[in-house]
Design a protein around this nucleic acid. Structure first.
Lengths: 153, 153
DNA sequence: GTCATAATGACAACATGCTGCTAAAAGCTT
DNA sequence: AAGCTTTTAGCAGCATGTTGTCATTATGAC
């Protein structure tokens, strides 16, 4: 044993870096899960995210608005949205409050797809949390949101 | 109990889906943080991940091995590694145990960069957890790892 | 109202991830 | 040893994300 640990141990530092690395991994795995679920419906994980935001915030959604919810760039969402509009899942309509930024809504077909999506997504969510308590989920969500607020400049 | 709640409330379902959405956001923000930290050193967040794995597992690292640690595809890591080798951060050397899969090591320049990286990364990690307890970090890491194991087929 | 600033759409360039494919090397079962 | 399976590198194609730029529209300060 050397006599002099000059360097501070700082277990929180290592814990946090481990957490960050694990979050990168989990993110990749979640995208994969989303791809698998969405695949049977002709969607991808990116469209899964977008259709979810549109379906929940059922009125007055715009492309930059979706981007803000997802924490992504306008341009990334715009590209996905344009494809989904071509595919007939969403529709653009004029925005009375804004000449440039059109409103987005689900088409009937988009609503069908979203309904079908829920029938895959909800059981997935329930199964995924089988051995996880509500309290654990809440505290993890709490921590994640604190980190989001810290990093969202 | 009343006979009427046709739809199960399942608060865990909504909690989990909120958590997943928040994880997507946090992932994007963490990548941004990594980009900012790595930028001053001429790195990007992707190279930040790779150099970290090489520096920690200081011997016998291969491209597919890094990919397994990061939970990414071989090809993604290979592309980053090839660029880093061109830039002189890492070096390939013959693998006595495997004719095809070469070993990766940090060059002296790579070690310098990693040292400089630590001087940015460690304070960042400590500051990021200022208002978070060790116990909270541990339980979050625990939960994330359980989810990784569940989804890592 | 005017003017600076912010938000938006559109386009381009690029980084990072994925899958799929082929051929070579390694590992394993018999 | 032979043969089947897995791992690997290298290539290609593509999806998803980023930033940057420019012109247009909104917004807010004065």
């Amino acid at each position: 044993m050397t006599p002099s640990p000059k360097r501070k141990h700082s277990p929180k530092r290592k814990l946090f870096l481990d957490l960050v690395l694990s979050l990168f991994r989990l993110n990749g795995l979640l995208v994969s899960e989303g791809d698998v679920m969405a695949q049977s419906l002709g969607l991808t994980s990116a469209r899964w995210k977008v259709i979810g935001v549109v379906a929940l915030a059922n009125s007055g959604v715009t492309v930059p608005g979706i981007a803000r919810v997802l924490g992504q760039s306008r341009q990334a969402v715009q590209r996905i949205a344009d494809v989904m509009e071509q595919d007939g899942l969403i529709a653009y309509s004029p925005n009375p409050d804004h000449k440039r930024s059109v409103l987005i809504s689900l088409t009937p077909q988009g609503q069908e797809v979203y309904t079908a999506l829920r029938e895959v997504q909800d059981p997935w969510a329930i199964e995924s949390t089988e051995d996880i308590s509500e309290e654990q989920l809440e505290s993890a969500l709490n921590l994640v949101r604190r980190l989001i607020n810290r990093f969202d400049h």
